[in-house]
Simulated scan of single mutants.
Amino acid sequence: MARSTTTAPAKAGPSKKGIFAASFVGTSIEWYDYYIFGTAAALVFGTVFYPEFDPTAGTIAAFATFAVGFIARPLGAAVIGHFGDRIGRKSMLVLTLLLTGGSTFLIGVLPTYAAIGVGAPLLLVALRLIQGFGVGGEWGGAVLIATEHASPRRRAVYGSFAQFGVPVGVLTSNLAFLAVSGMDNEDFLAWGWRIPFLISIVLVLVGFFVRSKLQDAPEFQEVKEKKQVIKIPVAELLKRQPRTLVLASLASIAPPAVGYTVIVYMLTYGTTVVGFDRTTLLWLILGSTAVWIGTIVVAALLSDRFGSKPVFAIGALTAVL
């Protein structure tokens, strides 16, 4: 197929700043949504949605609701990934933003157990499933669209754009809860916890504006133009790369396991067992995000210089320590 000089500019794609904004802003918003659920599960959901349980059982039930999102994430990754390969990355990234942000906002207006009984936790679980589904599709899509626009020597740096969204999501979600954590406990349980969920709608609008300006990578556009899009991408993955899929899935278990232990479980353990004030723990987690962001920058630069495998191994050993 002949290539004319007139079509080249159209395939240039967005600038590095545009890719950074689309990956970083979008994932920051979605991880904000995800982490405020975890923070609320640790601090308030046991009391508000599971009041018939004793405090320990209520906390376990709240964390079980939090865990439901992780069940939905692989499904979201497969479904959104399928249509991302078939239709386009941009449209799916907009969809995941709306799914995650919309469910988060609706959690903020949910009636409590005291208002509608068992219907309240059931609705909470349903919205958590939608949230997890959206984040499952979001994460892979954001990393993919960034790396597809990168040169081979800069893929780790471009891929890290999406990763910045995780600590920034933690940062903003903790700031949101810090803003209301000083409230009287009765007011906090009655309505204060809803504020971080409700303000997420503003962030969703910002993310939608940024991602609406995004373009699919020239590489993907060329595949569509040549009609080389695979009908069932996940089947192709399982057929061609089963070993890589299994190894990558196993390797990705440890980072979130360690992260959620510190960011979410520590809030419950620290306040109920150790006796810390919730504001103190929120500030400690807030401080850790500065180290987190700096580490992402260093790791991405080192990965492009020395390869991802040794950098990942060092990170894994550090996590064990």
Rank of each mutant, 00 (worst) to 15 (best):
R154Y: 04
R154G: 04
R154C: 02
R155Q: 07
A156E: 00
V157L: 12
V157G: 02
Y158P: 02
Y158N: 01
G159K: 00
S160I: 03
S160P: 12
F161E: 00
A162S: 14
Q163A: 09
Q163R: 03
Q163P: 07
F164S: 08
G165N: 06
V166M: 09
V170Y: 12
V170Q: 04
L171R: 10
S173Q: 11
S173Y: 07
L175C: 07
L175M: 15
A176L: 10
F177H: 03
A179R: 04
V180S: 07
S181C: 11
S181V: 14
G182F: 08
G182A: 12
G182E: 07
M183R: 10
D184A: 14
D184L: 03
D184Y: 03
N185M: 12
E186D: 15
D187G: 12
F188N: 00
L189P: 11
A190G: 08
A190S: 15
A190D: 15
W191R: 09
W191F: 15
W191N: 07
W191C: 04
W191M: 09
G192V: 04
G192I: 13
G192H: 08
W193C: 07
W193P: 09
R194G: 08
R194P: 06
I195G: 04
P196W: 06
P196S: 01
F197I: 14
F197M: 13
L198S: 09
I199H: 09
I199N: 04
I199R: 06
V204H: 07
L205A: 14
L205P: 05
V206Y: 03
V206A: 12
G207C: 01
G207Y: 04
F208Q: 05
F208R: 12
F209W: 14
F209T: 06
V210Y: 04
V210R: 05
V210L: 01
R211C: 01
R211T: 03
R211M: 01
K213G: 10
K213T: 11
L214Q: 08
L214C: 01
Q215G: 00
Q215R: 11
D216H: 04
A217G: 01
E219H: 06
E219A: 13
F220Y: 08
F220W: 02
F220A: 03
Q221S: 10
Q221C: 05
Q221E: 14
Q221V: 08
Q221K: 13
Q221D: 11
V223L: 13
E225L: 10
K226R: 12
K226T: 13
Q228F: 03
Q228N: 12
V229R: 08
V229G: 06
V229Y: 08
P233E: 08
V234I: 15
A235Y: 14
L237R: 05
L237W: 13
L237F: 11
L237I: 15
L238Q: 03
L238T: 14
L238A: 13
L238W: 03
K239G: 10
K239N: 13
R240W: 07
R240K: 15
Q241M: 11
Q241Y: 15
Q241P: 00
